[in-house]
Nucleic acid binder design. Structure first.
Length: 586
RNA sequence: GCGCCCGUAGCUCAGCUGGAUAGAGUACCGCCCUCCGAAGGCGGGGGUCACAGGUUCGACUCCUGUCGGGCGCGCCA
């Protein structure tokens, strides 16, 4: 509807430019919005006011010219000039009613568009290190990223969802060492567990699997291992040096193959856990991209080479540095350490180069807000090698703070005292978690009220929406019990009978859905959809309370049933895009 | 110290890329089931949009500064 009015205004604008009433170079982006106040009609445009300066005319005069030049349209029954120069449009009831057959015909595709057709978009999200289970912070990124991806999908983009697996690097070595030590303990060794190692229970689980399936194959005496270790922090030493020495010992004593076996056992165990967790969260990927593969295929080396050829790399203290400060970064960054190992940053540059080489027109990264300082250096690298940094959108997701019983749930990664995503799902359910996570703008800090998410009451916005859907289903069940019939074709013919205020409101809301979807997708703002669904459910509940649908008057009944069938479809579509179920009864 | 994000009703948050009288939910108060699910609906009170300037026909929205909260400033990932 909005698009139709924009087209009309565009045509009026062109004809005024041709007649010389407006300067030919005036090219404002035409804005049409829904009015908040019915006294202002159904839609309004501020076009005349935007043109006032360039045309050196009063807004109301321009509005008058536009109005005179406006092509006739069957859907528009009245146009008025109001206030400082708004042009208000009044649409015919038929224009609003047309959405009902459109919804019922398109079904679960209603609201979708083809504007992204032929364009490939990559969305990378979660990408948490496989050093432990996902926690509730990752959950928000998962819900947000998955929804953004699905929304773009609905806009016709070819969406490629990807999880970047950090299966290389020091953190993973620390995990491998942690697993090995727990394994040694299970094998009967007595040893002090390092300050800096992973202490979560899942490390025991991996170690147990390792011991169960391999016996004492990886066992070495602790005294032998400890012989080459410095003091740990608790003995006055450096915890970083200690854990690094321990990793070196593991590699030396186990040998490359066995070390890799222990390492991969931990990696695969945790990765399988993460995949399972996300699948239950209704989050799925086209591809799990291995960081290690970038080194193995030489992509990292090539990335460093490309940067060197661009002339933005120098050597200092035995390391290779990227002069990212040339591109707005705070300081220069190391690509290759003095020990010859490339950094995580080098891998990430290679990864982003790879993304662009794969031909994605747009690359979206969903990161935790704590990584925001990382954005400038990645864009700097893209710019240095001549790639377009604007092809990359980094969407930063703020943390969620959990509340239970009005109290903040304390979390700290250090002690392993964090709430996992799995625990959250078990406590509030996948639907509530998905919905609550995207209820807020991603850059907003979020208070996640566990009690509210769990509550089966009207306080809970998700139940409110799902209840509206279930209530429609319930009406159709009643229909059968009362031996009445529903004939959609008749209903669609009788939409003119829908003259009540509540029906008008509902028709208007249904018409908004495609616009909401487009805005939510293109701006990466799923919360718009969540809020819209709440409003649509409200319109339905209000209508439900005010009027009977299963009335004697067959034509009116068919019209009303067609309307609520459309409501049901749109709620189901919207919830589906949010990864939430639409139950037929609750 | 520097950089990024956020300050809107008691609380949790919207505010359609600068538009008309700033909106929901919740909490509080009062109503509505002989009726398709009351997990619902209707009505009421509640605001210096953190603060101070600036830009213009017009600012919650854009710019500058101040205050307050979060996060980040590794040859970790």
């Amino acid at each position: 509807m909005k698009a139709q009015i924009k087209t009309l205004l565009q045509q009026a604008l062109e004809s005024l430019k041709q007649s010389g009433a407006l300067p030919a170079d005036a090219n404002p982006s035409i804005q049409v919005e829904r009015t908040r106040d019915p006294a202002h009609g159904d839609f309004a445009s501020n076009l005349a006011m935007m043109l006032a300066k360039a045309a050196r005319k009063k807004p109301r005069d321009i509005a008058g010219d536009l109005l005179a030049a406006l092509p006739a349209s069957g859907n528009v029954i009245n146009v008025e000039i109001a206030g400082p120069g708004f042009i208000n449009f009044y649409l015919s009831p038929q224009a609003f009613q047309a959405v009902v057959p459109a919804i019922l015909e398109a079904g679960d595709k209603f609201g979708h568009s083809t504007q992204g057709a032929g364009k490939r978009v990559q969305v990378e999200f979660v990408s948490a290190n496989p050093t432990g289970p996902l926690h509730v912070g990752h959950g928000r990124g998962a819900a947000y990223g998955a929804t953004v991806a699905d929304l773009l999908d609905a806009m016709g983009f070819e969406v490629h969802r990807e999880y970047y697996v950090n299966d290389a690097g020091r953190q993973m070595d620390i995990l491998a060492a942690s697993v090995w030590l727990r394994y040694l303990e299970l094998a009967g060794e007595e040893l002090p567990f390092p300050v800096n190692a992973y202490k979560g229970d899942y490390v025991w689980d991996v170690a147990a699997k390792l011991h169960r399936e391999n016996g004492d194959r990886f066992r070495h005496g602790w005294t032998e291992i400890a012989a080459a270790l410095p003091d740990d922090e608790c003995d006055g030493g450096d915890k970083e040096k200690y854990i690094d020495a321990l990793i070196t010992q593991a590699k030396t004593l186990l040998g490359a193959d066995d070390y890799r076996f222990v390492f991969d056992t931990g990696l695969n165990y945790i990765l399988a856990d993460i995949r399972d967790d996300l699948a239950h969260f209704n989050v799925n990927y086209e591809h799990w991209f291995s960081e290690r593969s970038l080194t193995e295929t030489g992509a990292v080396a090539r990335a460093v080479e490309r940067l060197e050829q661009s002339g933005h790399v120098y050597e200092k203290a035995g390391a290779k540095w990227f002069r990212s400060s040339d591109f707005g970064d705070e300081k220069d960054r190391v690509l290759v350490r003095d020990n010859g190992q490339s950094t995580y940053f080098a891998s990430d540059i290679a990864y982003h180069m790879d993304k662009l080489e794969r031909g994605f027109e747009r690359v979206i990264d969903v990161w935790g807000a704590d990584h925001h300082g990382y954005v400038p250096r990645v864009k700097a690298a893209m710019q240095a090698v001549g790639d377009d940094p604007d092809k990359l959108d980094v969407l930063l997701v703020q943390f969620a703070v959990l509340y239970r019983g009005g109290e903040k749930v304390q979390m700290s990664t250090r002690s392993g005292q964090f709430v996992t995503l799995r625990e959250l799902r078990k406590e509030v359910g996948s639907d509530a978690a998905r919905f609550f996570y995207v209820m807020r703008k991603c850059e907003q800090h979020m208070d996640f009220d566990l009690d509210l998410a769990k509550s089966r009451s009207n306080d809970n916005p998700l139940y409110y929406i799902q209840y509206a859907h279930a209530r429609v289903c319930s009406v159709f069940r009643q229909l059968q019990e009362k031996q009445l019939d529903y004939d959609q074709a008749v209903g669609l013919q009788q939409l003119g009978r829908l003259t009540e205020n509540h029906e008008q409101a509902l028709l208007s809301s249904l018409n908004r859905y495609p616009e909401v979807l487009e805005a939510a997708a293109l701006n990466h703002e799923p919360h718009l959809l969540a809020h819209y669904l709440r409003e649509l459910a409200n319109d339905y509940h209000t209508y439900y309370n005010a009027h009977q649908f299963l009335v004697e008057d067959a034509e009116l009944r068919q019209a009303r049933l067609a309307l609520i069938a459309a409501v049901k479809q749109v709620i189901a579509n919207g919830l589906g895009l949010l990864g939430v179920s639409a139950p037929e009864s609750m």
